[in-house]
Each structure stands twice: as structure tokens, then as C-alpha cells.
């Protein structure tokens, strides 16, 4: 069962706290403007943004791959620079690109990852991870012999080998088939149930819509919005009512001007767009007025804007 994540003013201390984080590369490119963000333990947070928005830079700083220009990042209260051993030991990263050592077997690469993070050997845990990712039968295969989807699973297995408390998934389902994508979503939910905090970046809005508790939208290095997914859709989501008319309408009657209707499909469809957060959407009144005017319709349907449409709208507003 999905659970809603409490509001940002939660009582539980954040597992990840980012304060005024900036990054300017040597080229002069300001990849991150001051970014503030808090992630709660056990949360699934989706970071959305177009290419070059700063998603990977943000993740890379938290993981220790990129050095921040200014600001502070804390993981369970530990500073990522001063207490890097404490913070990195708690974090697992699945990178966007398929970075793997092609000549190594699946088993050896996950064993390497666990050791690298300072954890004692635990074949039972590694077996569990590989079985959950349907990799157990491939454990003695060299990574170069695996399909792209399987390589993606190997990267996840490596990230989970040291039992992280926070898992970063950078575009986890880019280029994978629908079945694997569904498998990964199921895995993410299982991980969350076990208490792992998950932060994912994605281009697939469907993915965020399916899994995330909260959504952050980043554009040109600026975190322009952080909101609970359901609240975001409720607040910003547009709804549309489409009426399929019995007879085509030449023009919208003056008595219907208040609803700002749009005639479509040669006057055969009447479209009414309204804000889902507005309690006075006026559908009953509209239908009543149509009845009074003798406008008949043979069918009607409503549609709600997806997270993708909300995302596009937000980002385009910034451009």
C-alpha cells in the first residue's frame, strides 16, 4: 500500500540535508545555484529536470564524486566533506551510464563493491541481492556477456552490496524494456519497505508519478519546486471536460462565456478546462445551463493533466 509522505515540516530529522549548495565548474558553468533540500528517511524522492539541469551534479556532490563550490550537505547529520567515511558508507549510487568492468564476473564485481565500502564478506547478503535482481543464475558470467538490462541490474546489485541506507538512482530505467522497468519499480518499493531512502532522477515522468512520495523540479541549476506528488498534482493539475455534441455548434453562446469554453473538432466538441484545486469548478452549473440552452451532447469525458504536463509547464515557465 502506498503511503503519503508527511509535509516538509516533519518531526523526523532528515536523512539528507542540503543547504545553500552551489557548484560552478572550471569552465564557468554554474551547474547549481544555491540549492536547499531535505529528504526524510524512507522517502522516495524524484528529481525531475531537463538535460543539463543539474540533477547529476547534485547527486554526484552528495556521493563525493564532484566537489561542491559552496554550501553544506549532511547525511544523517554527518558532513559529506569532513565525515566522508560515515556519509559514503550510507550511500549507494546507480549511475546513469553503464559503467562496469566488462571482464569481471557478476559475483566478483558485487563482492568487490561490498569490500570497497568496508563491509565484511557476506555471501548470504550478496546472494539475496542477486536473487532479487534475477542475477543469481548469471553470477559466474562475465559482465560483457550480459544484455544491457542485465548490466543495469548489476549496477543496482553493486550499489546494494554494502547495504546502503540511501540509494541514488540516476536515470535507472533509461533504455530498459517495459518488463525490466516494472521489475525495478517493484524492487524500489521493496527497498523502501525495508527502510531504504530512495532518490531518483528520471526523464520518465511516469516513473516519478508511479513511485515518488515527493517531487523536486530542477531547471538551470535551480530547484524551482519541491512538493508532495499528490499535492503537486492537486495544486497544479488541470482537468478538462470534453462534451461530444449531438449537433455541431457554430459559435459559443454568450450565456456560456463565463466558463471560457473552446470549440473543437469542427464545432462537434466543447472543451472546458478547469483547475482541479478550485472547489467551484462549475461543472453542474455548466451542464444545467447547456440543458437550458437546449444544447445536447451524446458523450462526455474528463482528463487530468499528468505529472509530465505539469513538469513541462513548470520548466517552460522558467525559460
Amino acid at each position: 500500500m502506498r503511503r503519503a509522505w508527511p509535509s516538509p515540516a516533519r518531526a523526523v530529522p532528515p536523512i539528507l540535508s542540503i543547504r545553500a549548495l552551489t557548484k560552478t565548474y572550471a569552465s564557468g558553468l554554474q551547474a547549481l545555484k544555491p540549492v536547499d533540500l531535505e529528504i526524510g528517511k524512507g522517502e522516495i524522492f524524484a528529481l525531475l529536470g531537463p538535460n543539463g539541469a543539474g540533477k547529476t551534479t547534485l547527486i554526484s556532490i552528495v556521493c563525493g564524486i564532484v566537489t561542491p563550490t559552496s554550501g553544506e550537505v549532511r547525511v544523517q547529520g554527518f558532513d559529506i566533506l569532513k565525515d566522508y567515511r560515515e556519509t559514503r558508507a550510507r550511500i549507494g549510487l546507480v549511475p546513469q551510464e553503464l559503467h562496469t568492468d566488462m571482464f569481471v564476473t557478476v559475483w566478483n564485481t558485487v563482492r568487490f563493491s561490498r569490500g570497497l565500502f568496508g563491509k565484511p564478506a557476506d555471501p548470504a547478503h550478496l546472494e539475496k541481492v542477486l536473487r532479487e535482481l534475477s542475477l543469481w543464475d548469471k553470477r559466474d558470467d562475465r559482465i560483457m556477456t550480459l544484455s544491457g538490462g542485465m548490466k543495469r541490474r548489476v549496477l543496482i546489485a553493486k550499489a546494494l552490496a554494502h547495504e546502503p541506507e540511501i540509494l541514488f538512482l540516476d536515470e535507472p530505467t533509461a533504455g530498459v524494456d517495459v518488463e525490466l522497468r516494472r521489475d525495478m519499480w517493484a524492487l524500489v518499493r521493496t527497498l523502501r519497505e525495508s527502510g531504504v531512502t530512495i532518490i531518483l532522477t528520471t526523464h520518465y515522468i511516469e516513473e516519478a508519478e508511479e513511485m515518488a512520495d515527493r517531487v523536486g523540479v530542477i531547471s538551470k541549476g535551480e530547484l524551482i519546486l519541491v512538493e508532495e506528488k499528490t499535492a503537486l498534482m492537486k495544486k497544479l493539475g488541470k482537468k478538462q471536460l470534453t462534451l461530444h455534441l449531438q449537433e455541431p455548434m457554430a459559435e459559443i453562446p454568450a450565456a456560456l462565456v463565463a466558463w471560457r469554453l473552446v470549440l473543437k473538432n469542427g464545432g462537434c466538441e466543447l472543451e472546458y478546462t478547469f483547475d482541479a484545486r478550485d472547489e467551484r469548478v462549475g461543472i453542474p452549473a455548466l451542464l444545467k445551463r447547456l440543458g437550458e440552452l437546449g444544447v445536447e451532447y451524446r458523450d462526455l469525458h474528463t482528463a487530468q493533466s499528468s505529472l509530465e504536463e505539469i513538469f513541462v509547464s513548470l520548466v517552460s515557465e522558467r525559460r
Binding site: 556521493c63 560515515e86 549510487l93 549511475p95 559503467h99 566488462m102 553493486k158
Partner: peptide, 17 residues
């Protein structure tokens, strides 16, 4: 080699000095 293949990310993100 890890720089070339990109696998260096893992060592850089590990609690290794």
C-alpha cells in the same frame, strides 16, 4: 582503465581515503 570506462565513480564514492 576505470577512468576510461567510468567505473572510477565507484572508488570515488566509496569511503576510501
Amino acid at each position: 582503465l576505470p577512468r576510461f570506462t567510468g567505473t572510477i565513480y565507484e572508488v570515488l564514492s566509496a569511503p576510501v581515503s
